[in-house]
Nucleic acid binder design. Structure first.
Length: 145
DNA sequence: GCTACATGCATTCTT
DNA sequence: AGAATGCATGTAGCT
């Protein structure tokens, strides 16, 4: 299947099975996941977020200026500060996470990789994680030795 | 026909 | 001029 532009994101689950399944983490509730596209990993440093889940589980935005959002990196325990905002779009909204360039670069994210956002209800904070094709291969290679 | 969203692109800011 | 910003446009996939 191919998609040149537009269209809905992946719905109802993941298209490929990673070697590890980091979206299942004890104590964390999955809020959303996003399969990264070219524009998400470009130099623009912004990631489009799925509208339905954003509106359901991320903080309500009353202004398009949005707000700052902190997320704890599950891989390296780093604390990231992003800007969470929306753009007006066809009488609706497009939700965007900005200042994501460092995160994408740090983890070498590629097209087809996934990011996952969890809510840690106990500590009342958001947690960010990824599922990367490259990382999965490394895990497989490490296990085969 | 409608919606969500990937990306195009005009405008604004920075150097 | 080049980069960043913010909205507009085109369209895949639903319905």
């Amino acid at each position: 299947r191919k998609r040149r532009s537009g269209g809905r994101g992946p719905r109802g689950g993941v298209r490929w099975m990673p070697a590890i399944r980091p979206h299942q983490v004890a104590g964390l509730r999955v809020i959303l996941q996003k399969e990264l596209r070219n524009s998400d990993i470009s130099q623009l440093g912004r990631i489009v977020l799925p509208k339905k889940e954003s509106e359901a589980y991320l903080p309500i935005l009353t202004s398009k200026d949005g707000r700052s959002l902190r997320m704890h990196d599950l891989l390296n325990a780093q604390l990231w500060t992003f800007k969470y905002r929306y753009w007006p779009n066809n009488k609706s909204r497009m939700y965007v996470l900005e200042n994501t360039g460092d995160y994408v670069r740090t983890h070498n994210l590629r097209v087809g990789d996934f990011i996952m956002i969890y809510k840690d209800d106990d500590k009342n904070r958001f947690v960010l994680n990824l599922s990367s094709w490259l990382l999965s291969i490394l895990v497989i290679l490490a296990r085969s030795r």
